[in-house]
Design a protein around this nucleic acid. Sequence first.
RNA 1: CGGGGCGUAGUAUAGUGGCAGUACGAGUGGUUUGGGACCAUUUAGUCUGGGUUCGAUUCCCAGCGCCCCGACCA
Length: 412
Amino acid sequence: MRQSRLFTRTKKTAPKDEVSKNAELLIRAGFVHKEMAGVYDYLPLGLRTLNKIIGIIREEMNGLGAEELLMSSLQRPDVWKATDRWDSEKVDVWFKTTLQSGSELGLALTHEDPLTDLMRSFVSSYRDLPFSVYQFQTKFRNEMRAKSGIMRGREFIMKDLYSFARTEAELDAFYEEAALAYERIFARVGLGEETYKTFASGGIFSKYSHEFQTLCEAGEDIIYVDEEKRIAINEEVFTDEVLQELGLDKEKLVQKKAVEVGNIFKLGTRFSEPLSLTYKDEQGKDQMVIMGSYGIGPGRVMGAIVETHADDNGLVWPEAVAPFRVHLLSLGADEKATEIYEALEKAGIEVLYDDREASAGEKFADADLLGIPYRVVIGKRSQESGHAEVKKRTESAAQEVALESLVSYFQS
RNA sequence: CGGGGCGUAGUAUAGUGGCAGUACGAGUGGUUUGGGACCAUUUAGUCUGGGUUCGAUUCCCAGCGCCCCGACCA
């Protein structure tokens, strides 16, 4: 992609009303645009990164054997009434609207209820189970107060996975597989080091649920981390009794702020019971379907990556989620740079080519701000020496790579 | 939802009861070209409604919006 054709532009200053690091940098770099409090648009660069994150999650979901679907954002009140969650006293983040006829509708804040209802059409026998489905879908939550940039919005995309099982053992087995998939996801997007599987309160059907918490100052949760065992406990279940049960030593725990980037939750029959999602077992008797739900917010993951990786000069993307792999800068050597650009493109390497008529300083500053992993500079120097300067965003030292071997450098 | 703060060009900021200024950005022309370069020139603004006043961007009230702290967060 030629940068001169990118409609977004970098800014030296951030809007004064953005305090969170993630929104400030993402706006300055032209990845997102703020529509209103808690609502952001993803611009081309931001969408590329978001889609990289989504792609990784999708691969891992498919690896679990889950099937992707897409449910609607408009939801019928009756299913929510059946689970006693329509009342705004019970669920206070509802966005509700009405049809022209006057009947009420809800804007999706999650999908347990309508999905459970949907599955009544497809689940009837023990032979139909177990299975799992997932989606990337827009959720609306009428938060009292939006904050933390893209990490707590009123509208956001969520990956939600739901499992349907015959027995608790079957649920448990899937749950453990899902936990492993989650760990792989956070490792792949570059948050492995700072993300902890965290014990949290479990609701009615199990003692604990698990959250995946990424350590970061901008986080809203307080967790207690055992760095050796690489597990953590959410403040909400931090009691001596729980510590003993989990075999954790209070002395070794460190209090940290963290952001919840994912969670996994055993639902049991919380939804299948009120919505009558049952199956016939081998004896022909009706049994309740045992469910689980598993969420990840790709936008929040993106925000967490910014919060934990960015430096004073701007964004720093891990390779797996960067909008482009290579940022090619032409410093007064357009002819040669264009040649290199075309060669890289042809080789299938994702490259952003800064072909703008701008000063060197501006191009360098923008490259740092955008945070693309590899910066390749083609200038007059390199034309004379036959080498390009290649620098990683995470390193300060650059290296010289012969122009003719650039493509193979990035293919390996 | 309770408390606090703030609304001036696209962005960031000054200032005043009587001409609204600066920087960045953007446009044009030129000089530059390895860390946001320079000169000239142009462009564009007082959140909305009401009140006080000869006159309101400024003072008062209301609304809307934004930010922060707290509460909340299947």
